[in-house]
Design a protein around this nucleic acid. Structure first.
Lengths: 201, 201, 201, 201
DNA sequence: TATGAATGAGCATTCATTCAT
DNA sequence: TATGAATGAATGCTCATTCAT
């Protein structure tokens, strides 16, 4: 598909520019110059500038889900020891963030520098991720795996905050430790810090 | 000083608006309408829009330092047991972030939705905070307080990520747990999760 | 001819759209969507958007002439009593306008909301119609049928203004009185108002 | 008032341009070049291009009312013989249209070459004028002044169509017969044609 | 010092037309 | 002959900043 490839190319160029400069500093002019296409062509593939960014955000979310699904293949979660499950979760996140630093930057650092509706889209994604983690932690507390007195909401935010910050620091800023073996080391290190404080020995 | 009060009022209105809508969605028109002053008056107190935001960022940084200095009063850090020192650090951050949710939002969520130079200012502040924490962790490792195999850089990011995320979640988003006693509970909870993983028993 | 039918269909769709929305509010996109043809196909049949509209205008003029010619068949104008001749003229106009309300709307209401050259085409048609009527009125004055002191130019405009306004009001706006018998009544009514003021008793 | 004068100047320039070229062919660029002001200045006085045109249309309507009010001063309508009343009405219209040919052109010839909402504004004005005339004719029929069998709706359109067409022809197109004495002659001529056909002798 | 009208560079978006397939 | 993706000039509008009063 020629058209699909073109659309994808456009998205890639836009992703890079948005990631480097942010939404408002990236002009349609920059995108078309970068993609070597005519001004009107952008609007053949996207309704407007907003739509381009939204599509990237949706991609980020889809890939998040896909990464999880991919990693889950061949893993029997129910039989996984809880500690391994936590590692699995941390690795999931890191693997995802390591895969596409530009998209990671978009998701983790765009924050409120976006039009209101895009901020909402970002928030929704955030809430969903935190919510899922909270639910899993709650389940583990109830089943005597995690400390009975653990504040689930706080813990979910703690872990998510820690992991995303680390992902941003290494993968986006320093562009290191992003190959599979190093990610494994990262997982172990993060796990070794957090696990003792939340698991029942 | 009439002029000083006017300048401060302007900053307060701008802070609220920037915090609510972000940099680019906040127009000078919004600020002057909100502050009930004339358009030109803004430029009597600030070089330009950028300067207003920079000033707010500088304030954030100054207050960060001031909060630490304030908390340090009457505390002999050298004689403080290491575990208490960590708690003290966590409490410092939380106290600061709880004090001014609007400023907190500015610092934690504006990200790359800013003109390039402001992004740099934000990054500088970030690096400084992380750097300081890293140095302290390094010292503690060397003196046998923390695990010898602890990755200092990773730990600093982990703790900072965890704490800022929690601050953002409770103080900015949910607007709860921001009074001193509840902050103490937060500190204990965060400490109880992280401490076992980093201290030498 | 398949091609001729296609061209005619295109004109019909364009006529409806132009009539409903005007020239500038009707986009080529609207026309091709409505006609279910491809964008490029339009330019196989017409030089450009302008050419479509011009063709419609030319059609309007041609049909005007055709309507007159049609009505004239079997009528010996020279032997027609002058009063009947006026009625005949009024009926001609009304019959024409009643036939195609969309075209009527195009001719009577597009006015200056057109590109300069189309305005000129519209004006030319207008002048021709008025001119012809003026000539006939002049002839009737000279031959002692109409009042000697009648201002021919003014009368032509008066009659044309009255008739077109009535046509627009009933046929385009209200979509009534457009069948032959009712047109006859309209003719009588218009005649009864204007005739006493212009004919020599 | 400096600002008021500027606004008025802007309206005058816009009126001329709109009248000469129509709505869509008149660009904001044309207006500011003509008025020798900056692009942004237009938007200090008007919300958008539409608003400029709307204001002109409103002015047209207001001046229509004002013209009538002005002419009515010192005239006792109730004691006016019906024939003089018709003349008075015709003169009113002509006086108004003669006063500002550019505005006249805007009102009489813009037709459907306008954005939908402006077309509606134009139609509303038209209906109001026709409606008022219809009411007056109806009253005159009921009181035995006009022919009992007169079709009031048709007559109102006939008179309005005749008068506006004549106004357009002389005042806008030919730019003649627009001084008070000549208007009086026009009134007499129009009256002499229409009156015999509608009044009861 | 305070004001607010004026400025104009900059931006997203539209749309008639072209042209390779 | 028909298609529809690509084009890019043109347009209305925004908004930070200036400056005369």
């Amino acid at each position: 598909m020629k058209a699909d490839a073109r659309r994808q190319m456009l998205l890639d160029r836009a992703k890079r520019l948005f990631s480097q400069r942010g939404y408002y500093q990236t002009q349609i002019s920059d995108i078309i110059k970068n993609a070597k296409i005519a001004r009107g062509t952008v609007y053949q593939y996207f309704k407007n500038k907003d739509d381009i960014f939204s599509t990237l955000l949706q991609t980020a979310y889809d890939e998040w889900q896909a990464t999880i699904a991919e990693e889950m293949k061949g893993v029997d979660l129910t039989s996984l020891p809880p500690r391994d499950y936590l590692k699995f979760r941390i690795r999931n996140s890191l693997t995802y963030f390591a895969k596409d630093p530009e998209l990671t930057n978009l998701v983790l650092r765009m924050g409120y520098g976006l039009p209101a509706n895009l901020v909402r889209a970002l928030d929704r994604m955030d809430r969903e991720i935190i919510g899922q983690m909270g639910a899993e932690l709650g389940w583990a507390v109830k089943h005597g795996v995690l400390r009975k007195d653990l504040d689930v909401e706080l813990s979910a935010n703690l872990i998510h905050g820690a992991v995303t910050r680390i992902a941003y620091h290494y993968f986006v800023k320093k562009k290191t430790r992003n190959d599979p073996e190093e990610i494994d080391t990262l997982v172990e290190e993060i796990f070794d810090i957090i696990a003792p404080g939340i698991f029942i020995p």
